[in-house]
Design a protein around this nucleic acid. Structure first.
Lengths: 216, 216
DNA sequence: TTATAAATTTAGATAAGTCTAAATTTTTTA
DNA sequence: TAAAAAATTTAGACTTATCTAAATTTATAA
């Protein structure tokens, strides 16, 4: 149907579209670790297949059919991540690369049965929503910890940065999905924050606070 | 490490090596659904990587390192087939194509954990032995039903033909892995065989008898 | 608003894996 | 054992996805 490279482009366009109306060539080149000229070539190909809307120099958006393909890849990625953590006992910082390969396994029947086998999970190990077999998913309204004030509380529900380093840091601090936190203090000097979590005080930098997502 | 095409060639060479000392270009072309000239090109590449022993016009054998790669792919293929049947409830005739994709997922850690998750199975859904994490597996000594005589018994332990059509036929006749059979009669005219299985009489053609494997 | 910088596209090249057609080697057979 | 047939390899071309370098377009700034 679509090649591996095409799938990766569509997925990347989808992810970059979250923050902007249209996605630029350079953004894609940076995310896909390739050159702008290679991106241009692929964009023409995807436009020919009517998976994206592409006007030279003006960036791209996904068409309805392109978005469907992208969401399906993301569904597969997140379900496999869930499988790796819940069934094979991997840690949340270990599963991304494996899921990057597994998301390209083509069978829809397989992924639907995997979904059923695991009890139709709604969120992956990083708190990201898992699209159902129709491509529908909850967009829950998360805020970075940095966006709330002293004496406010929240539940950790996701991360903005998905890097191994950040996930390992959070794991070590036990700042994991589902934990309740209370903001005790914001240090004026560097805007780092002191939280209470399970009766412990934890100080996190502004950088961390910006990348840790909570629901109120 | 190795490309998808390289992995498929090594796997094919391994499978064809079971029946002969060396594997020919045309055998590979037929099995891989490609042309002899394409095979020659790839054989040169694999020889450069010291995964096969190749002398022009003389066919190929796997080197120790090529065999290790091939066995590892087969391990992954069979473990995923087992997973699909035992965990996701697919039928034994449905899993081959999916496992053809899944066998290329690279992580060794993943496959070893999958193996553990399933309790270290020794045989896949078609009765083929699953190599362990060191590449070792039981070669049990199976015979085609056609090779035994009247009044002899055996346990169905494998198939020679792995085609969907043959597997579906066996399923319908309930001639599945683990069943006990007794040879009641061999029809002289076409050498078809009449078996007793779970108090039922079943007649199978010579063709079927040649492709159904039992242990005595 | 024109010059400069940045972003993007085009042109031409490369590597992997495949193909067809022609050439070569091996095997078979008369 | 020489001619014919079969198997295999070589030569040259194509596609996909990539690259560098040059050209073009858009954005920015004096």
């Amino acid at each position: 149907m679509n090649t591996l490279a095409e799938e990766n482009y569509l997925k990347s366009i989808y992810h970059l579209s979250v923050n902007a109306a249209s996605v630029t060539t350079n953004q894609l080149a940076a995310l896909l670790n390739t050159k702008a000229s290679s991106v241009t070539d692929m964009l023409k190909k995807l436009a020919d297949k009517e998976l994206i809307n592409y006007t030279p120099y003006q960036g791209v958006t996904l068409t309805a059919s392109g978005e469907k393909v992208a969401v399906n890849i993301i569904r597969k990625h997140r379900l496999w991540e869930y499988f790796l953590v819940e069934k094979l006992n991997f840690k949340w910082d270990q599963v991304h690369e494996m899921a990057e390969e597994m998301e390209h396994i083509s069978s829809t029947e397989l992924i639907d049965r995997l979904d059923k086998f695991m009890g139709y999970p709604k969120y992956d190990p990083h708190g990201d929503p898992i699209p159902d077999c129709n491509g529908l998913f909850n967009i829950h309204n998360l805020k970075p910890v940095a966006a709330i004030g002293v004496n406010e509380t929240g539940v950790i529900c996701g991360v903005r940065d998905h890097s191994k380093e950040f996930l390992q840091y959070l794991e070590k601090q036990e700042l994991t999905i589902g934990k309740n936190i209370l903001i005790l203090e914001v240090i004026e000097f560097d805007r780092s924050m002191i939280l209470e979590m399970e009766n412990k005080k934890i100080q996190i930098s502004r950088e961390v606070a910006n990348n840790l997502l909570i629901s109120l």
